[in-house]
Structures are given as structure tokens and as C-alpha cells.
Design a protein around this nucleic acid. Sequence first.
DNA 1: ATGTCC
Length: 473
Amino acid sequence: MENKRINGNDLLALGYKENHAMGVALKINKKRLGFSREQMLAKFKDVLDHPESYLNDKTFKPLAEVLLNIDAIEKETISLNETPDEYAVYGEDHIEEGAKKQMDVAMKLPVTVAGALMPDAHQGYGLPIGGVLATNNAVIPYGVGVDIGCRMALSVFDLPSDYLDTNRDNLKKVLMANTRFGAGHGYLRHERVDHAVLDNELFDTHDLIRSLKDKAWTQLGSSGGGNHFVEFGVIDFTEADEALGVARGKYLALLTHSGSRGLGATIAGHYTKLAKDICKLPYAAQNLAYLDLNTAEGQEYWLAMNLAGDYASACHEVIHDKIKTALGAELLAKVENHHNFAWKEQFEGEEVIVHRKGATPASKDTMGIIPGSMATPGFLVRGKGEETAINSASHGAGRLMSRTQAIKTLAAADLKTMLENHGITLLGAGMDEAPMAYKDIYTVMAAQSDLVDIVAKFSPKIVRMAADGSRED
DNA sequence: ATGTCC
């Protein structure tokens, strides 16, 4: 393809190095200035060879300035350790190279204490998705992720699993009436509900968060797009679980996956930028910029992150409460867990900051939920407290295909057949969420048998996700 | 993930 987009490799071929100049060049390249690929490559080459000629050029001035000062800029950056510390990888055979490379960089940070890769790991911004990183008194906004506090919540109802067969139409209506999906979408003024999370003082004292209060209110109890879902299914306890108080049997259950919506995304964006301004790391590690928890900015992020986590939790609570009320059902058990967050935890006898970016907390006896996909089972698990994995497990099956690849290659007819074979009703979703785009959940669970015990299996039956293209009404 | 560019 002659007109493919210029990338880092093209710039390396021109003689650029993997440093901040490359970052600036790629940013300029994104602007699409009407030049052809060849013209743009020629420009980049000429700026590299004669930066002084571009100091008055509107477009290339920032690049020329960085190129002329590159030595001073690189000298100001925090040095990484020469070699990455060792870290455990679970299910290595099925983890893409890019995720390991990102983890290698994270393991060179001066604040890093330990790391681990979960079997659903894939490439993200900064820390890979499925990456766990313990640091010394520092928090990495991109180590938490953009969707701060993204989590799972499961309600097990005192209704038998065959309730699904006899009440499918009603359950569909309950799901449609009590959930809302899609980027930007929330509830109208008269539809809003209240929740104590909105009383958090940051909504009064923190300028940015104050400006987000109204949006947070409208989006309270909504679910977003992408892989977020609200679904009814059957949970199968092949034996009684005494700690949870559930007898052997199959029950109707509600499973939700969503995060902190626009509130968390805006907080993440704000503090990632702030961290990058404060913490100057080499280009390859830029997105791992961290905030020292002994600074005002670090403390502020910590409070804002916790608010976003509480808000994500409140969203699930609203959904589960509405649906429980609509069903008039009794709750047998409820489990929930964040999988995009940072915690203060003990690790090998010292206090560390554990970042889990798409990883389930799995310290000894901690309950968690690891979903499969819309047509494959998810699992209720109990942590085994494996310290090598920094007391963590995967947060799902993990992607096998990128969203664009899935949309391009997967057939809607195949998905339809698969859903029919499994007796699944699907409301919304695009091909990018098809089960074929995900790794095999059984393989992923087998790769982490040292990390969690399976308590029960959840099979989705009525699944609601954002409409195709993330638009929804 | 997010009304997808400050």
C-alpha cells in the first residue's frame, strides 16, 4: 500500500532515532497536511538534515527545535535501568510480543519493585493491558488505564436457572428498560437517580471534577461502549460455597462490566498529561510517566482515582438495584472487583503501589470475576494469593484480534450461528465483540490455575452491549 | 476506554 500512514519504522529508516524528536514528528504526521506520503517522508528527511532551515516553518518548527536541542532534552530525562528486572509471565505462548516489550520497559523504571503479565495480556498505552506493576510510592496514571475503576459486578438471585427459559421476553424488557449504553450517553434530568458518591467533596473543591459533576450525574447507572455489557445468565455452583453462602445449584445471575465513564476518562487524561509534564522519561517510556505520592499532584491523583473507582462502583450498584427491584428477586450473593486501578498493598514485607491494568485482584480468598465473551463462560474465582503474580489474575480471555481486524475478517452469519447454538439473545454489539475475536477462555483459565480457584461458572444468556459503532439511544 | 484534538 503506497499511501499507508508513516510510522516509527519509516522515521527510523530516514535516520531518526527512538527519542523525543520521533514523538514530535509522529504528532506532526497525524495532522495530515495534504502532503502525499512521499512528500511527507521527503520533508521529514529534510528537517532532520537541516533543522535550522525550519525554525520559521509553521508546521515543522517544533520538530526543528527539538532536533537542535535533542542532547539537552535527552539529558534532562530520568534514566531507566539498563536491563529490565525479571517478571513472571502466565500463558506466555499466547501473549503478543508488543505486550512483553512494554512490560520490559516498565521493568526498567527506577520506581519499579516487581511486575507480572497475566495470560490475557495485550498491548496498550504505557503498561500493557493485563499488566501488573508494583512501584515504590509512585503512581502511573497509564498504569491504571483510561477507564479508571473499570470493574465487574455479579448478583446471584434466588431464582432457578430455568426462570430464563420461561421469562426470556420479560428479562429482555427488564434489561432494555434499566440499562443505557454508548459513549456520551446518559440519563435525562427526570430519569436521574441519586447516589452518595455525588456528595464526595472533590465535586466542590477540585476545579476539574466540579466541572464534571453534572455529566457524572447524567451517566450514573449507564454502561459505556466497547466491551462493556449488562447480561443475564446462568451461574452453576457444582458444589456449595460456604464462605459465599450459596448452596449447590444453578441460579439466575446478573453480570455487569463497565467503568467510570466520562468522569474517569477525563481524570485519567488530565493526570496523564500532568504526569508527562512533571516526569520526563525517555521516549520509549513516556506513557509510563509517574507521580510521586509525596507530592501534591500525586495525592490529588490518588484521591481523584479513588473517586472514579467509587463512581464506577456506584454505576454498577444502580444497575443491579434497578434490575433486582424490577425482578422482585432476593439476592443470594454479590461479588464485585475493580480491574483497572492502583492499590496500596503489602508485597514481600513492604508497602508498594500495585497497578492492575486489566488484571483481577487475587490475594488469598479474595473473590473476583473473570468474564469470557458474549457467548463463552465467565468464572467466579477465589484468589490463591500467588506472590509471583503480585496477587493477581487475568481480567478476561484477552483479545486474539484487534477491533479493526475483527470487523474486517469475521462474518456476521458465523456469529449468528454461534449465538443460536448457545441459546444466547444478543442486544446490540458489533463484530469487534464477537467471541471469535477473543482467546479461548479455557486456555486462559488453565494458564492461571496457580493464581485462582474456580468457584462457579457463569454462562451468558441475554447480553446487552452498546449498539454497533458505539452509538445508542 | 472516551462525545474520539488543545
